[in-house]
C-alpha cells in the first residue's frame, strides 16, 4: 500500500507567497493567477499491516509538526479538492532527503514494513481562464521545475 501524507503550513507559507509574487510581478501572470498554495507530499510505500491506522499515527507523529503544520492522509489514492490545478514536482535524480526519511523510519524507529519514501511538492495553482492546465504547465516549465533535475505532472484534476 502507499500512504500519501500531505502536509501544509498553518502559518503563512513564504515560499508559496514568493512564487505568487514572482508570477504576478515578474512573469506577467496578473489577472491569470489568483493564488498559489503549496503542500509537501510524502508517498510512503509499506507492506500491508493489520493495523493501518496505528502505522499512520506513528508516521504523522514523526513527520509532521502539528504546532505549525496541518496534514491529510489517504491510502493508495491522492485525494485532492477542486478549484486549483495541482502541479506535483519531484526530483528525477536521486532524492537524498527521501532516502534519509526512509532510513530514519526503518533504522531508527524500527518501522521495517516501510519499503520506500518518495517526496514531492504539490503546487496548487488557482488559475482563471479557459485552459488552466495549459497555464499550469507553462508555469511549471518557466518557474517550478528545472528539467535537469526535476520532473512534474499535473495530478489528476479533481472533479468539480
Amino acid at each position: 500500500m502507499i500512504i500519501n501524507l500531505r502536509v501544509w503550513l498553518k502559518i503563512p507559507d513564504a515560499e508559496a507567497a514568493t512564487v505568487k509574487n514572482t508570477l504576478l510581478r515578474r512573469m506577467g501572470y496578473q489577472g491569470i493567477v489568483r493564488d498559489v498554495k503549496r503542500e509537501r507530499l510524502l508517498s510512503i510505500e509499506a507492506e500491508d499491516v493489520s493495523d493501518t491506522d496505528s502505522l499512520i499515527k506513528q508516521l504523522t507523529r514523526e513527520l509532521v509538526n502539528e504546532n505549525k503544520e496541518n496534514f491529510a492522509v489517504s491510502v493508495d489514492s491522492l485525494e485532492l479538492s477542486n478549484g486549483y490545478v495541482p502541479v506535483k514536482v519531484s526530483l528525477w535524480i536521486e532524492d537524498g532527503e527521501a532516502i534519509s526519511i526512509r532510513d530514519r523510519l526503518v533504522k531508527r524507529l524500527g518501522l521495517r514494513m516501510i519499503r520506500s519514501v518518495q517526496r514531492a511538492n504539490i503546487w496548487k495553482l488557482y488559475i482563471t481562464g479557459d485552459d488552466p492546465e495549459a497555464v499550469a504547465r507553462k508555469i511549471a516549465e518557466e518557474l517550478l521545475v528545472n528539467p535537469n533535475k526535476d520532473r512534474y505532472e499535473i495530478s489528476e484534476l479533481p472533479r468539480p
Binding site: A14, E15, T18, V19, T22, R26, L143, L144, N146, D150
Partner: peptide, 16 residues
C-alpha cells in the same frame, strides 16, 4: 537569494 525558495537562484533569475 530569496532564501533559496523553490530552488537556489531561480527567483532571483526572474528579476529585471
Amino acid at each position: 537569494s530569496y532564501q533559496d525558495r523553490v530552488r537556489a537562484g531561480v527567483i532571483a533569475s526572474k528579476e529585471p
